[in-house]
Simulated scan of single mutants.
Amino acid sequence: MKTRITELLGVRYPIIQGGMQWVGRASLASAVSNAGGLGVLTALTQPTPEALAQEIALTRELTDQPFGVNLTILPSIKPPPYAEYVAAIIEGGVKVVETAGNSPKEFIELFKANGVKILHKCTTVRHALSAERNGVDAISIDGFECAGHPGEDDVPGLILIPLAVRALRIPVIASGGIGEGRGLAAALALGAEGVNMGTRFCATHEAPIHDNIKQALVGASERDTRLIFRSLKNTARVLRNSISEEVVSIERRVGGCEFEDLRPLVAGVRGRAALEAGEVDNGVITAGQVVGLIEDIPSCAQLIERMVAEAREHLLRANSYFIGEGK
């Protein structure tokens, strides 16, 4: 395939594995890249910049194809040493970075000076336009269906993707709700030039999470996600389980709640432990509505090749509906 995204990233297919906390490791990122997509490490999954440097080196041993690193910049009383993580990315020779959260403006010039392409993930057109003005190379636009943080505007991809394409000059990557060839075909038809998938790549052989979690994703329907932190204006979409149900219940209490009321349930270390031990009901598990489309656990190569073949088939079929000249 050839789009501005494949040209920008140097990949065979415009399919990107989004950065996912605790999941974006060398085993998964290298498998996606070897299959023709863009694998992505998650910087803050690694406890230190030095550990990220080691994970970059390991990924380079496992693939000779391009891969990227996700750097999510979040407001915090005691923020991670972002500048040191940026240095690890640059010194590791990584040429693609996926940024998310707050604006990466303070690091853009440094990335550009070192030949690093910047994909910025956002949930609104207004933030996408700001990122374009700041100099990022492409926008990954997250619809309301997505896992993780969909923003507070609740605009689904079917509306958000063409709005972003209409407004931006740089390429748009569709994110949220995509897990099969139909989604890839739809994203291309809406004007996107690539897709970003997180939840779907969790249900693959190479994803470094327990098989119980993968099976939970296969068994879930499109109705089996929950929106937590809505009352705190920091909405996150996660898998429906005992923890997310309890969080929602607390948020609905008369008088509301504070984050401290939720902290023991949603702590990151608890979620990580659940992913590793396969304890589906013992931590927050990030997942998008695309779980309703997940029916198996293929390898990354099987998934990507199948998606590309299906997308071609669906686009050709759609084209066949036109008759006469100009078809």
Score class of each variant (00 low, 15 high):
254 V>Q: 15
265 L>E: 00
244 S>Q: 06
255 G>L: 07
228 I>Q: 01
231 S>C: 12
248 V>C: 11
240 R>K: 15
255 G>H: 12
233 K>Q: 15
244 S>G: 10
252 R>Y: 11
232 L>N: 07
262 L>Q: 00
237 R>C: 07
276 E>L: 06
267 A>D: 14
262 L>S: 03
276 E>P: 03
257 C>Q: 11
250 I>K: 13
275 L>Y: 06
228 I>W: 00
257 C>N: 11
270 R>I: 00
251 E>M: 10
256 G>E: 05
249 S>Y: 13
242 S>H: 11
227 L>T: 01
228 I>F: 00
233 K>R: 15
266 V>K: 01
274 A>H: 02
273 A>T: 09
269 V>M: 09
227 L>S: 04
257 C>D: 09
270 R>E: 04
246 E>L: 03
249 S>N: 11
271 G>M: 04
242 S>N: 09
275 L>I: 01
251 E>R: 12
234 N>G: 06
277 A>N: 10
238 V>F: 08
226 R>S: 06
238 V>H: 07
272 R>F: 07
238 V>W: 03
258 E>D: 11
260 E>A: 14
253 R>D: 12
233 K>H: 13
266 V>R: 05
250 I>Y: 08
242 S>D: 13
231 S>R: 15
247 V>M: 01
273 A>W: 09
261 D>L: 01
260 E>V: 12
242 S>F: 02
245 E>P: 05
277 A>Q: 08
263 R>G: 01
231 S>N: 14
